[in-house]
Amino acid sequence: MKPAMKALLKRNAAYYSFLLLPLTLYFLFFLYPNASALIWSFFKWDGMAPEMEFVGLKNYIDLFTKNTIFYTALKNTFAYTIILMIGSNLMGLIVALLIHKPSKINNVFRTVFYLPGVLATVAIGSMWTLGVYNPNFGVLNTFLRSIGLDALTTAWLADPRTALFCVALVHVWQNMGFSMILYIAGLQEIPEELYEAASIEGADSLQTVWHITLPLLRRVASIVMVLVLIFGMRSFDLIFIMTEGGSAFGTTEVLTTLLFRQGFTFRKVGFSNAIAVILLIVVVLTSAIQKIFLREKDGGQ
């Protein structure tokens, strides 16, 4: 080997060694379990027996034909995600439009609205479950009673009509600051001259927002949409904490809580992993479709 070549390899050897440990951990504790999940979904196993029984596509077929709760979970996952996307985007965008200009007071508001984003989900969950939704002394029912609307009071997180919406609302509260920060970043990239031109033309502020700001925010909006969509699809923590693992008579059952219960409680490992794979496919597909859809719109303008 030529000395130069040898030196090059030797020099790159150091760089390979930098990657060695992190990649090992990543393969072992992340990629390998994910690959196993895929493989296990073709087996029947209780998680303990020494032998796993190969059943082919049976877990998937059962899922779609025998298990009606699966459709409920799928429907709830989509409903929850849609509430989160609309709420988080709309609130984040409106607040961002009001406070995007850099100033001291706007900075204070920005800090306030992003605050829930740094709080632990366990804290947020218990805060809302006890302080706001508690049927006996929570804020919501106390308020309704005080204005004479006793008829509207309910056990918000146990009532099948309200449970899913109430949890999703907390997620909106937690997540809207995230959307807001991204929209603010997008708004600050819009050149000031455009606004000046609009005001010379005599456009009022609503017209300016509609004709200048919103069209230019499309790229940021598509990023926020896709990210919040993924958050919604994989949401688990709040539902788990606020409705005892998604039970509430199945009304808050989503794909993540369903696969958790099937695997850890009922020990149907293969079945649980089939749900996991479906979840993965749903997440990847919906975010891909959304990305393409938003990009096409982008190109058309």
């Binding site: 990629l31 992993n273 996991a276 794979v277 979840l279």
Partner: peptide, 19 residues
Amino acid sequence: FIIGITVPVQVSLMPLFVL
């Protein structure tokens, strides 16, 4: 690495637990 950013945590939970 991009896979690592998109995959939901719950997918690998059972195999990870066994591992």
